[in-house]
């Protein structure tokens, strides 16, 4: 049990508790704010796993952009600010069974498959901007360009979808 294990375990508990609150909260706005906590704890997990750049991108794009977009969406669709009973559909028990089954199958599978696997984070190259940038522009240039075109297409699509008919 090293320090990394302890830190990762604490961050994981925070992340998981926030995630459960995201899907069970009766307030849309509260759910979006719990999403911030979940993503922040997950960024900490990435830092423990030596993925420095991914952690900062997580903070910048997920917490900074995606959650703000969600809040905008909630406000533009006039989401109720108070607690509402109507946030969940009638199939909660079935959904709980499906979620538990998925988590159980995946969890037992990965724990059984990687029981003794150990991540030696002290002898791994830190994934900072230089390392990831070098890898990105040396080996993954084509996917990078495709991703940029995808983002452009998505933005144009979003504008076309929300444009009011004249």
């Amino acid at each position: 049990m090293t320090l990394a294990d302890v830190v990762f375990g604490l961050l994981g508990v925070v992340c998981l508790a926030a995630a459960i609150l995201v899907v069970t909260s009766r307030h849309v706005i509260h759910a979006a704010l719990w999403l911030v906590v979940c993503f922040g704890a997950l960024a900490g997990c990435y830092l423990v796993l030596t993925a420095e750049l991914v952690a900062w991108v997580q903070v910048l794009i997920y917490i900074g952009a995606v959650v703000v977009l969600m809040l905008f969406g909630a406000m533009l669709t006039r989401a109720p600010v108070g607690a509402v009973q109507q946030l969940d559909s009638g199939n909660r028990p079935v959904a709980a069974v499906a979620g538990l089954a998925t988590a159980g199958v995946l969890g037992t599978l990965v724990v059984a498959a990687f029981r003794g696997a150990y991540v030696d984070i002290h002898h791994t190259a830190i994934g900072d901007g230089k390392v990831i940038g070098t890898s990105l522009f040396r080996f993954f240039v084509l996917p990078f360009e495709v991703a940029s075109v995808l983002l452009l297409a998505a933005l144009v699509g979003a504008i076309v979808l929300t444009k009011r008919e004249a």
Partner: peptide, 25 residues
């Protein structure tokens, strides 16, 4: 640190997400 910790957290997060997608209205 143990790899299975990260994988277990990931599996549990995915299960929570599955529940949310199916249960939310």
């Amino acid at each position: 640190m143990h790899l299975s910790m990260a994988l277990l957290l990931s599996a549990l997060l995915f299960g929570v997400g599955v529940y949310g997608v199916l249960a939310r209205r």
